[in-house]
Simulated scan of single mutants.
Amino acid sequence: MSKSFGIKSGILHTYKTIGFKSVCPAAKAKQLNMKTNQLVIIRHGESEWNKLNLFCGWHDADLSEQGAKDAINTSAVALRESNLKFDTAYSSALIRARQSLSIILKELNLCDLEVVSDWHLNERHYGNLTGYNKRDMADKYGEEQVQSWRRKYDVLPPPITADNPYYHSIRNNPSFKDIPPTEFPDTESLKVLMQRVIPYFENVIFKQVLGGRRVLIIAHGTVARALIKHIDKVSDENISTVNVPNSIPCVFEFNMETGEKVGKTTFLADENFLNEQIQKTASIGESNK
């Protein structure tokens, strides 16, 4: 049996033991004849820049070989064994999210599923940290400063400048051609990112969930943290303790009439594996030198 985890005040807690095939049955909801629907969010598989421990943000890094395997063996397996079905899938405009989604849908025989890729679900822009190794930056600026840039709610990394090696490839990415110039970021905190992610979620995705469509979102670590903060009402202070690992599905269930969440947030993974991946995500990691 695997264990599911709930999020409360920004901290991950074990709250019950479940099998993959009995995910979030919402027994209480059934007792009340409440109509509910589920939403699943997955952070993309490991990218080539995750592997190198680089700040990635809006740089369009491909999935690594391991990331592609994780999309199959972690994401798709958990969804299949949990018997979760989908009507629509969303991803960011970044290729690592789109590749993860494509692999997962192929594994689930859902290649004809409606798919929407939108820049509002892009990872946060890491500004001038883009392309630099996290450990090298910690050695230069101190671990406290780097973790503040990574995890604090309203701390902005330095804005990207034209001499950054990835500035022009980001600005000229064809996938971003429809972004209004006034909305194209040079740096983002979690707070700033939420100003684009949450309205899109509420006005587009969540309306579909409450309308009965079963939605899968493949996005990024900070986007998943933003949605968890919004849905679970995590405080500005406690959100720094929330880390979302690659490839592990996160399931939410909602009352379709009121929009309120039913039960606790659930990660579909074995307890030991989940904790191991969370610690990996939280770590600043090693230099690639």
Score class of each variant (00 low, 15 high):
P181G: 13
E237G: 05
S169P: 09
R196Y: 08
H220K: 12
D186T: 15
F176K: 01
A224Y: 04
P157Q: 06
K152E: 15
V192R: 14
S240V: 07
V223F: 02
F201L: 10
I231L: 12
P245R: 03
D163K: 10
P174F: 10
H168M: 13
K207A: 09
P158C: 05
D236G: 03
V244G: 00
I239S: 03
R171I: 12
S235L: 01
N243M: 13
M194C: 15
H168T: 14
D186V: 15
S148W: 08
R171T: 08
I231T: 09
R225F: 02
V192P: 08
V197F: 07
D163E: 09
L156H: 14
Y200V: 10
N164C: 06
E183A: 13
S235G: 07
S169H: 10
H230C: 04
I160G: 05
R213E: 15
P181N: 13
D232N: 13
M194W: 07
S148Y: 05
R150C: 09
L193E: 09
F176Y: 12
P249D: 07
P174R: 09
I248M: 12
Q208A: 10
I205H: 03
L190F: 11
E237Y: 12
S175T: 09
P245W: 02
R214M: 06
L227F: 07
K191R: 14
I170H: 07
A226N: 11
I239G: 00
H220F: 11
S148G: 14
P174I: 04
Y166I: 04
E202L: 08
G212D: 08
E183F: 09
V197L: 10
N203W: 02
N164H: 04
Y200P: 01
V242R: 00
R150L: 00
K177Q: 15
R171N: 13
K177T: 13
E183W: 05
N203P: 10
P174A: 01
H220E: 02
I218L: 12
R196K: 03
N238S: 10
S189Y: 12
H220A: 09
L227Q: 08
D236W: 07
F201P: 03
D154A: 13
S148R: 10
T187M: 13
M194A: 14
T161H: 08
D178I: 00
T241K: 15
F176I: 04
S189T: 10
S240K: 13
L190M: 14
F206Q: 01
K177W: 03
H230L: 03
K191P: 08
H168V: 10
T222E: 14
V244W: 00
N173I: 02
P159A: 04
V244Q: 05
G211C: 04
D186N: 14
P199S: 01
F206V: 06
R171Q: 15
S189C: 08
I217L: 10
K177G: 10
R225Y: 01
P181V: 10
S175G: 12
D186Q: 14
Q208E: 15
I218Q: 06
H168E: 15
R150E: 01
I248S: 00
S247T: 09
R150G: 01
V234Q: 00
G221C: 07
N246P: 11
C250P: 05
